[in-house]
Amino acid sequence: MAKTTRGLAQDRARVAGGQDHEVNYEAKKEAVSKDTVKKTVKEVGNSRKKVEDKLDHK
């Protein structure tokens, strides 16, 4: 099966709150706790831009 890039851009645009590696990445990137990232995802949804915007304002 050939590797494709289908869906990769969409995947990067989302934060999977249930995926530890994604939560850890955002927490490190934004210098906040993992719990803060998870709460923010629940508040604003899983759009990476919305999550990062909300975390920047905290």
Score class of each variant (00 low, 15 high):
Gln10Arg: 10
Lys28Gln: 11
Ser33His: 06
Glu22Ala: 06
Lys39Gly: 03
Arg12His: 05
Glu52Leu: 13
Tyr25Trp: 04
Thr5Leu: 10
Lys54His: 14
Asp35Phe: 00
Glu30Ile: 01
Ser47Pro: 05
Thr4Phe: 09
Lys58Asp: 11
Lys38Thr: 00
Lys58Pro: 05
Val32Lys: 01
Gly17Leu: 05
Ser47Trp: 12
Ser33Ala: 07
Glu43Phe: 09
Lys28Arg: 13
His57Cys: 13
Lys54Glu: 15
Thr40Phe: 03
Ser33Asn: 07
Glu43Lys: 15
Glu52Ala: 13
Lys58Ser: 14
Arg6Lys: 12
Lys28Ala: 12
Ser47Phe: 10
Leu8Lys: 12
Gly18Gln: 13
Asn24Ala: 14
Gly18Phe: 08
Tyr25Asn: 02
Val37Gly: 00
Tyr25Asp: 02
Lys39Asn: 11
Gln10Pro: 00
Arg12Met: 10
Gly17Trp: 04
Asp35Met: 00
Glu52Asn: 09
Gly7Val: 07
Lys29Trp: 02
His21Ile: 11
Val32Leu: 01
Lys39Leu: 06
Ala31Gln: 12
Arg12Thr: 04
Glu52Val: 12
Lys34Pro: 02
Asp56His: 15
Leu8Tyr: 05
Leu55Ala: 09
Glu22Pro: 02
Lys58Gln: 15
Arg14His: 08
Thr5Pro: 01
Ala13Phe: 05
Leu55Glu: 10
Lys3Asp: 05
Lys3Ile: 07
His21Ser: 14
Lys38Pro: 00
Gly7Pro: 06
Lys58Ile: 14
Arg12Ser: 04
Gly7Trp: 03
Lys29Met: 05
Glu26Tyr: 06
Ala9Lys: 08
Val41Ser: 03
Lys58Thr: 13
Thr5Asn: 07
Lys39His: 07
Val23Arg: 05
Ala9Gly: 09
Val41His: 02
Val37Ala: 00
Glu30Thr: 07
Thr5Val: 05
Lys29Phe: 03
Gly45Phe: 09
Thr36Gln: 05
Val15Asp: 04
Thr36Arg: 01
Asn24Gln: 13
Ala27Trp: 03
Arg48Leu: 06
Leu8Gln: 10
Lys54Ala: 15
Ala9Arg: 09
Thr5Glu: 05
Val15Glu: 06
Val51His: 06
Arg6Asn: 09
His57Gln: 15
Glu43Met: 14
Glu22Ile: 01
Glu26Lys: 03
Gly18Pro: 05
Arg12Trp: 03
Ala13Asn: 12
Asp11Thr: 04
Lys38Met: 01
Asp11Arg: 12
Arg14Asn: 03
Val32Asp: 00
Asp35Gly: 02
Ala31Pro: 02
Lys3Pro: 01
Val41Pro: 02
Asn24Gly: 07
Ser47Glu: 15
Lys28Ile: 07
Ser47Asn: 15
Val32His: 00
Val44Thr: 13
Lys49Asn: 15
Val32Cys: 02
Lys49Cys: 08
Glu26Met: 12
Asp11Trp: 08
Val15Lys: 04
Met1Pro: 03
Ser47Tyr: 10
Gln19Asp: 14
Asp56Val: 10
Arg48Asn: 08
Arg48Trp: 05
Asn46Ala: 08
